[in-house]
């Protein structure tokens, strides 16, 4: 990796850190913007009656100090991964979120790979068969999945594959009380994963398919494609050697931008399928009016997006030789 690439990544890291700082400040003011005593807001309704706990919160976050001091305490706590303690679970917020993180990473990761793979493939096929039935079919399917509410699709999938056909489980991440180990456990988790990952992935499959198709068609009209044809290449070779790589660049950018949406989608999918990830945790926090936990999940998921964007930037840097200069 060249020095320029490292500097580019360094620059992106700093930008990401700034974004997180702004979100942290934003979080801080959101708590204060909520009506009522901030300690009570942070503790949520559940903790509202426990004076001792409230006092503990006030001390920890310096809630009786001036605002700038509170902000300082909040940020410096955050830097040390201290987001306070949830009353109900009696557990540090950060630990709770990290407990739930693997499940979410598994779900979103699977959905992401699935949708990227199928979406790009469908987009390429549609562009290749431009204005033939395969194109129309893929375009219409993409349009429909693009328009369908994710949570509804999840419910319908659960209804059909789980309730009606009884093929796949639609609840949780593992069979409760089965105590499986090793490979059996892996298979069990995978079968639980199929429905949530597929429904979460479908929307993004539609997104990537549309994008890839449009980008392929656009790239096909570029001058260097003419050059390739004039060399005497077969159409397939032109597509795979010249068009595809160029056409995928905007898809990579889009995939990076969609990371945030994937997290949002996880909140809904995890809620429907009772998948024990941070999305489900967010729903629980909402239900229990545990605002501190809610904002903690929000902050961590933002941090995940920042990280993901960074990864996409690095990938982009590798696939597009122009990036170092045009920064």
């Amino acid at each position: 990796m060249s020095i320029q690439t490292l500097m580019y990544i360094g620059g992106r890291l700093i930008k990401g850190a700034i974004v997180l700082l702004v979100i942290a400040v934003f979080n801080f003011f959101l708590i204060r913007a909520a009506p009522g005593d901030p300690a009570k807001v942070m503790a949520g309704e559940a903790g509202a009656t426990d004076e001792l706990f409230l006092q503990q919160l006030r001390e920890q976050f310096g809630l009786d100090q001036p605002l700038y001091y509170q902000l300082w305490v909040y940020i410096s706590n955050l830097v040390q991964f201290d987001m306070g303690i949830t009353y109900r679970q009696q557990m540090p917020v950060f630990d709770l979120i990290m407990d739930r993180m693997p499940a979410t990473l598994l779900l979103t990761g699977a959905a992401f790979l699935l949708s990227l793979l199928i979406g790009v493939l469908a987009g390429v096929v549609a562009a290749q068969k431009h204005k033939q039935w395969a194109d129309s079919f893929i375009t219409v399917a993409a349009l429909i999945f693009y328009a369908t509410p994710l949570f509804w699709l999840a419910m319908m999938a659960a209804l059909f594959f789980s309730v009606y056909l009884n093929w796949l489980p639609s609840f949780g991440m593992e069979t409760v009380g089965a105590n499986l180990t090793g490979f059996d456990r892996f298979i069990d988790i995978m079968t639980h994963l199929i429905l949530p990952a597929a429904t979460l992935g479908l929307f993004f499959t539609a997104v990537y398919a549309r994008m890839t198709r449009a980008s392929m068609i656009e790239t096909t009209r570029m001058d260097f494609v003419k050059t390739a044809i004039a060399k005497g290449m077969t159409p397939n070779r032109v597509t795979y050697r010249h068009v595809l790589r160029n056409a995928l660049l905007p898809v990579v950018t889009l995939a990076g931008l969609q990371a945030g949406q994937l997290i949002g989608g996880a909140v809904l999918t995890e809620t429907v399928f009772a998948w024990p990830g941070i999305g489900r945790l967010m729903f629980e926090a909402l239900f229990q009016r545990d605002y501190n936990l809610l904002l903690g999940v929000f902050f961590i998921s933002s941090a995940m997006v920042v990280l993901f964007n960074l990864i996409t930037d690095v990938i982009y840097c590798v696939v597009d030789p122009r990036i170092e200069l045009s920064k």
Partner: peptide
């Protein structure tokens, strides 16, 4: 025709900026 193109008859274009694949 493909066997002739680029082999027996070849072509260059107006815009050198866009006639080459930027990623190759």
């Amino acid at each position: 025709a493909r066997k002739i193109r680029g082999n027996r008859i070849s072509m260059i274009f107006q815009e050198p900026m866009t006639a080459l694949n930027p990623l190759m």
